[in-house]
Design a protein around this nucleic acid. Structure first.
Lengths: 219, 219
DNA sequence: GGCGGAAGGATATGATCAAATAATCTGCTG
DNA sequence: CAGCAGATTATTTGATCATATCCTTCCGCC
């Protein structure tokens, strides 16, 4: 097919995995929504086998959840699970930010600033999807600088778990009027203050967690 | 088949997943050893599809690793990855131990003591596999008490990553003459000292990490 | 309200296709 | 003439699909 040129040499199950991952991260799949193998296979124009494999991966990462029987859905966060996520993220992500700050070159910082600028533009535009995408990109690219694959993969899984709920939050309240912790992180980065970067990232993700908590409490 | 009676109603891919997971945890698959789908399918008497799904899950959990091309093998830890694992485990597992201690009933503690007793018997017997199994069981059952599924799943993934190396270490040096941190943890648990339990577990896993580090440094 | 049957969907197999590595062969050079 | 390099084939293994079988659920009926 023509689309296979764009995907280069990536196997179908990998492409499907990334696609579904995006759907979870950026709110195309809402929390609680059931996911069927044949449905996805139809939508994505793939066979059932690659879709099955992608779903297994995403289930292992916590992006999807077995429903006891043999059904799969996007997990709905409870308050206590949100506490677990808050703890895990606060443990892992500031550390990654610290390591990243130590290794960042001026070019790396400029790149992150560009991503952050696009993020802010998306906010002003009221583009929720763009906001989520660039926010995720910012954290992902930052953590990649840390050159700590295991910790980064853990952080990726944690982001996957908060993704759907973040989407819901953004639909309700905006993200206006909140302090810009990314800006703080970038400033500290330019100043060579790795601890400051870690603190800023910790504050940033705490903001997101708190917003989700508000949303859960509101019902 | 006859074996399906023992497994109850578990789907094949789940059975295969648990089997391969055990092989990784308890040293039937050594670090660096290549893993082939068809080989496993033949050994386990299963079709390719369930094996593929199990491998995807285990790869997502870090128990197996893509080898760039399309080959899969048991990962070999580097020193810097060991540092990452040490940090992540020290962040997550003491917390789980703390939560578990708060919820543990006397019956729970008795169960853990029974597991620990079997562990010690395996050590005296020189039974490496038994030691690894009961050690894993001890941590797994302890963390299950915390009723924190997300943190427990993270801990499970971290244990999966150190499993193969632990096996190698046990083959070289014994585990003799090391302080018994499980005993410390259980004592603190009976005393209702959750912080003490967390400290003991932190010391326990640090011991394991240090042993692996010694082994890596020795080459 | 409990039971039976139909339908939708998940599981699992084997066949087929494609890719990567291993092995062999040929031709050239020292 | 021996040895090595490059290329080509062969074998092994992974990827994908189409299909058959089995659950689970839902709906109608008793």
């Amino acid at each position: 097919m023509t689309a296979s040129q764009q995907t280069g040499r990536l196997p179908t199950h990998e492409v499907v995995y990334r696609r579904i991952r995006e759907m979870v991260l950026f709110g195309e799949l809402a929390p609680g929504q059931p996911v069927t193998i044949q449905g996805l296979a139809g939508d994505l124009g793939a066979g059932m086998t690659p879709v099955r494999e992608a779903i297994r991966r995403l289930t292992a990462e916590g992006a999807l959840e077995f429903q006891g029987n043999r059904r799969v859905c996007v997990p709905v966060l409870t308050l206590s699970q949100l506490d677990e996520l808050a703890f895990a993220r606060q443990s892992i992500e500031p550390r990654l930010a610290y390591l990243a700050a130590q290794r960042a070159t001026p070019g790396d910082i400029a790149h992150l600033e560009a991503v952050d600028a696009e993020l802010n533009r998306a906010i002003e535009r009221g583009d929720v999807r763009g906001y989520l995408q660039h926010n995720h990109r910012f954290h992902e690219d930052l953590y990649a600088l840390a050159q700590a694959r295991i910790l980064a993969s853990l952080a990726g899984m944690l982001l996957l778990r908060v993704g759907p709920s973040l989407r819901v939050v953004c639909g309700r309240f905006g993200t206006y009027g909140l302090p810009d912790r990314h800006r703080d992180a970038l400033d500290a980065m330019r100043a060579g203050d790795a601890d400051g970067v870690a603190r800023a990232i910790g504050a940033d993700l705490q903001q997101g967690i708190d917003q989700i908590r508000q949303s859960l409490l509101a019902g």
